[in-house]
């Protein structure tokens, strides 16, 4: 086929509709939102809401966990939208995306200094670190698949490692959002290690899978 013919063909299949990047932004945002809804549903259906969630300390910690997950998720979407465009990786700052992790780690460090050393173990591993470690990555699978599909369908990332990492970060964040409704542990170090750690794990998995899954 001659390239001129192709251009003629593409030109004639051109639709007279204005297209804007905001269209892609909305689609990606929607994919993350649907992913979050799936994560919530999975967490509620499989794990169930924690008893006594609406009382003082559990409620306070729920707000803390939600704030952490929302901050991570918000930054993930912000940069995901950029990395989904060709060349957009130059406007992605993974250091800034890591700020919520740094902040929570700092808070955890501060809170550990207020308790005696022999309680550190209990503060960090809590009642259910294993459940958290398993649940967040498992719940993240559905949002991860959804957002991956959306990036492939609507975007055109040219840095697949970063794009994958950000998909993983977003999926991990919405998964943590859902899991927080069930989570029984109310200490800052627990959130820092197990929420932060599992979301980081999802990010790493995304970075590894990105080059395979996000090709277009």
């Amino acid at each position: 086929m001659k390239t001129d013919d192709l251009i003629g063909f593409l030109g004639s299949s051109f639709e007279r509709e204005p297209v804007r990047t905001s269209w892609m932004t909305r689609r990606l945002g929607l994919a993350v939102a649907v992913g979050a809804a799936c994560a919530l549903f999975l967490a509620l259906a499989v794990l169930g809401v924690r008893p006594g969630l609406m009382q003082g300390r559990p409620l306070l910690f729920l707000a803390f966990k939600l704030a952490f997950a929302a901050a991570v998720g918000g930054l993930a979407i912000r940069y995901l939208v950029r990395v989904a465009s060709p060349g957009g990786e130059s406007r992605v700052h993974l250091g800034i995306a890591a700020l919520p992790f740094v902040a929570v780690a700092a808070l955890a460090g501060a809170s550990l200094t207020t308790v005696p050393r022999e309680h550190w173990h209990g503060q960090i591993s809590g009642h259910s670190w294993l459940e958290c470690l398993v649940s967040i990555p498992l719940i993240a699978i559905v949002p991860f698949a959804l957002v991956t599909w959306a990036v492939r369908r609507f975007g055109a990332p040219t840095d697949l490692i970063r794009a994958g990492a950000l998909v993983g970060l977003a999926a991990g964040a919405v998964s943590a959002l859902g899991y927080s409704l069930h989570c029984m542990d109310d200490t800052v170090p627990f959130v820092a290690v197990w929420y932060g750690g599992t979301i980081a794990l999802c990010t790493l998995a995304g970075a590894v899978l990105g080059p395979r899954l996000l090709r277009w």
């Binding site: 192709l6 593409l10 299949s13 130059s90």
Partner: peptide
């Protein structure tokens, strides 16, 4: 490759942000 690239530029033209220069976008693709 020219044709393949023209085709993807056609199908993914909505990924171009009109506030940005076109060179980095095209070059990245």
């Amino acid at each position: 490759l020219v044709q393949e690239t023209l085709m993807v530029i056609h199908t993914r033209r909505h990924t171009y942000d009109v506030t940005q220069p076109v060179t980095p976008w095209v070059h990245a693709i």
